[in-house]
Write a protein that binds this DNA or RNA. Structure first.
Length: 636
RNA sequence: GCCCACAUAGCUCAGAUGGUAGAGCGCAUCCUUGGUAAGGAUGAGGUCACCGGUUCAAAUCCGGUUGUGGGCUCCA
């Protein structure tokens, strides 16, 4: 007998050759039904893996993230199986992993291009294969055998995968006449797959390299039962209602125009006002934290972009203009003017740190395929700052920025993910610089108490960085705040300061943004609030609505009074019923509707109705002004 | 930039197999003066994204351009 230890610490004897499935069965029928895979001494394995020695066994069930991943990975195999059945020799299989909300499988084909019209057919075949309840069987073979097998099937991508894997033995999974190279684990049979749906097709480069062949990726999702699948699709539908592109139009915030050009935002009055509110907030917050407000020109001579290195490294993304034989680059970044400001004086260590802040509008020629509403545009404004300090001040400055980011994200109620990226293979600067800067970033993250992930080798070529990512309505992540150490620019512009010792030293530079790009931030913000901006941000905070023409003059007077007091208010005197006006104000997501009827007019009050439907008791216009100002002060 | 799809009124969308366009909402005018999510009547809006081709005839078929959507690569 072998001794099997369970997660609760108990130990049970089993005959050698027993499997995790036997273990599950011994523990209960319910568990046996729910189990999809197991962890044997910490290693993921199939339920059918024979146990040949004392070990720890942990069963993985469908309700765990790993269980769902196994389920979806098997669904990916089922999809590949169906595709091979239907399109046979025209299509080669490549890889097909589970992802956040489902799975995909990449196919290569010269002869067939998949389109959504194929989905129904593929799904139908998948349903048949699932109904056949084919056992999914693991098999280990030598690398040579595997290569021979896939070569005989004409699956050249699989052959390449095995060749690059460099393992002497690989595992295969068979179901019916379909076989795939796979590490596993998998569900025991295809019949376990109950609910799946193909969602989209997309191109994807083989191994994510644009120099490689373009594969056809079919995205799909799978859930343990149909109800969950339906709920997921309903959630997607809900998310679409929060899409900032849709709300941007519905709330009349911004638009794009084909004739103006792709990726160029046209801000309508309400959007421009929202943006202005954010920008005012930023200027106040930066001044509070010891930043200096600076401004630079939109275009700078091309020679200067050569000095900075942008001409060599960033030219494809830049717009240029030439007049009178003089070439200018439209700025894609704000750092140049900031360098020039630093250089305009002799600097002492006593002047440092210097923190130059600019709401800097930049233009970048982004590839046409990447543009995405406000989240990826070609002209945008960064809340950009460059901090120049002594090496000793670096830690404190990084910490200060992180606290800044944390405080600001707290005001908006954002959850965010933090990543730190370290030195890439191709980089400049001394080992000492990199080590010091990376350590400073890590130390600051720990000091501020932020959880983070490390992306080894993902830093900029000029320095390590911290990125902060926010999620949009569809859970796609967008980089907003970033803190980057830069060793090149102080060097290239020969920035110096005079130290205590009377010698010239090189300052350290931090490049950082807090919101990132105002456009992107507003995009994420719209989805975050689903268009229901808090009072302090709402471009229209209140609308004055009269019940009948009888109160028009009083309503106008109230409107004037509120506007003069700084409340962003609009007036709706239209000849419509109160219910109709309220309905429209609801659609506009205006926080407060100030109802004025004969009662309010007689009392000199307004009756505020919050967009939740809740009524405040009637109050004087003065009291409402005070209320709004108080709420805004608390960022509510 | 690459792959797939899409582009009809301000918005959301109808318009088999080619025969020069329709609805709802919105908008305008009139009636209605109505207390917390739609009062009624009438009316005006479209070079069917743009350019070219096939055809007696193109919103419809083909090609290109621009823009948009979902991805890939890249990135705030």
């Amino acid at each position: 007998m072998i001794q099997v230890q369970l997660p609760d610490g108990s130990i049970k004897p089993f005959p050698p050759g027993s499997t995790p499935r036997d273990v599950a069965a011994a523990l209960g029928a319910g568990l046996a039904r729910q189990a999809v895979a197991a962890r044997i001494d910490g290693q993921l394995a199939d339920l059918s893996t024979p146990l040949d020695r004392d070990c720890r066994v942990e069963l993985i069930t469908l309700d765990s993230p790993q269980g769902l991943e196994v389920y979806r990975h098997t669904a990916a195999h089922l999809m590949a199986h169906a595709v091979k059945d239907l399109y046979g020799d025209e299509v080669q299989v490549t890889i097909g992993p589970a992802i956040e909300n489902g799975f995909y499988y990449d196919f290569y084909s010269e002869r067939h291009t998949f389109s959504p019209e194929d989905f129904e057919r593929i799904e139908a075949r998948m349903t048949e294969l699932a109904a056949a309840d084919l056992p999914v069987v693991r098999e280990e073979v030598s690398r040579e055998q595997a290569i021979a097998l896939f070569r005989s099937m004409g699956e050249t991508y699989k052959v390449q995968l095995i060749e690059d894997l460099g393992e002497p033995r690989v595992s295969l999974y068979r179901q019916g006449d379909f076989v795939d190279l796979c590490r596993g684990p998998h569900l025991p049979s295809t019949g376990r797959l109950r609910a799946f749906k193909l969602t989209s097709v997309a191109g994807a480069y083989w191994r994510g390299d644009e120099k490689n062949a373009m594969l056809q990726r079919i995205y799909a999702t799978a859930f343990p039962d149909k109800k969950e699948l339906k709920a997921y699709l309903a959630r997607l539908e809900e998310a679409r209602k929060r899409d900032h592109r849709r709300l941007g139009r519905e709330l009349d915030l911004f638009s794009f125009n084909e004739e103006a050009g792709a990726g160029l935002v046209i801000w309508h009055p309400k959007g421009a006002l929202l943006r202005t509110i954010l920008e005012d907030f930023e200027r106040r917050e930066h001044l509070k934290r010891g930043y200096d407000l600076v401004m630079g020109p939109q275009i700078l001579r091309t020679e200067l972009w050569k000095t900075s290195g942008h001409f060599d490294n960033y030219r494809e993304n830049m717009y240029f203009t030439e007049v009178d034989g003089q070439s200018y680059g439209i700025k894609p970044m704000n750092c140049l003017s900031h360098m020039l400001i630093y250089k305009s004086h002799m600097r002492s260590y006593r002047d440092l740190p210097l923190r130059y802040f600019e709401l800097g509008t930049v233009h970048r020629h982004e590839k046409s395929g990447v543009l995405h509403g406000l989240l990826r545009v070609r002209g945008f404004t960064q809340d950009d700052a460059h901090i120049l300090c002594t090496p000793e001040q670096l830690d404190g400055e990084i910490k200060g920025v992180l606290e800044f980011v944390r405080d600001v994200m707290g005001i908006f109620g954002f959850e965010y993910e933090v990543e730190i990226s370290t030195r890439p293979a191709k980089s400049i600067g001394s080992d000492l610089d990199w080590e010091r800067a990376t350590k400073a970033l890590l130390q600051a993250l720990d000091d501020v108490g932020l959880c983070y992930e490390i992306n080894e080798g993902d830093g900029a070529f000029y320095g390590p960085k911290i990125d902060i990512k926010l999620k949009d309505a569809l859970d796609r992540r967008w980089q907003c705040a970033t803190i980057q150490c830069d060793f090149t620019l102080p060097e290239r512009f020969d920035l110096t300061y005079v130290g205590k010792d009377g010698e010239r030293h090189r300052p350290v530079m931090l490049h950082r943004v807090v919101l990132g790009a105002i456009e992107r931030f507003i995009g994420v913000l719209i989805e975050h609030y689903a268009g229901n901006f808090p009072l302090w941000l709402a471009p229209v905070q209140a609308v004055v609505v009269n019940v009948t023409d009888n109160q028009a003059a009083y309503a106008e007077a109230v409107h004037r009074q509120l506007r003069a007091a700084g409340v962003r208010v609009k007036l709706d005197l239209r000849n419509e019923k109160l219910g109709f006006k309220i309905r429209e104000a609801q659609f506009e997501k205006i926080p407060y509707m100030l109802v004025i009827g004969d009662k309010e007019m007689a009392d000199g009050t307004v009756s505020p109705r919050y967009r939740s439907g809740q009524n405040l008791s009637p109050m004087t216009p003065d009291a409402f002004v005070q209320f709004v100002l108080d709420e805004c002060k608390q960022y509510r």
